[in-house]
């Protein structure tokens, strides 16, 4: 009996873990809904994403994406294709796309805090520097 319960709960856990809903969180300093729409559409077109975060600020666009568990091996490929699409959608923006979990966390922190322009500038600089660290 206990064994059955275990198996059922494990299966449930597995199903729950896999069917995680795709979340997009964004922060636009000028609150341009149309730009957010365009970006969200780029994300939704890709079936492999599980989570995405983006921050718009002064013609800069910092994006981070998390891929689904089974697509982890193709992570770099997915990141590149997203980068290409975002760049073509926002040709006048300085686009930066990362697939690093830490960058997602940092961007989400920014989105939660909704900082002022000055702070945001500093934060984004920090995030970009972090992402460029090699070792």
């Amino acid at each position: 009996m206990m064994k059955k319960l275990w198996i059922i709960s494990l299966i449930l856990l597995g199903v729950a873990g896999c069917s995680e809903e795709f979340k997009v969180s964004t922060y636009h300093v000028d609150d341009d809904q149309q730009e957010i729409e365009t970006l969200t559409k780029v994300f939704k077109d890709n079936q492999n994403l599980s989570e995405a975060a983006a921050v718009f600020f002064d013609h800069q666009l910092v994006v981070s994406v998390q891929v689904q568990q089974m697509s982890k091996f193709k992570k770099e490929k997915i990141r590149k294709s997203i980068e290409k699409k975002v760049k073509s959608a926002f040709p006048d923006h300085d686009v930066y796309v990362s697939s690093d979990l830490k960058i997602t966390w940092e961007l989400k922190k920014i989105i939660d805090e909704q900082p002022t322009t000055d702070e945001l500038k500093k934060d984004l600089k920090k995030v970009k520097a972090l992402a460029k660290e090699e070792t």
């Binding site: 690093d100 979990l101 830490k102 960058i103 966390w105 972090l130 992402a131 660290e133 090699e134 070792t135």
Partner: peptide, 14 residues
């Protein structure tokens, strides 16, 4: 290391 310090997925491995 990633959550409490400024390490990324790449740099946290060391």
């Amino acid at each position: 290391f990633m959550y409490f310090f400024s390490f990324t997925e790449r740099t946290a491995s060391n």
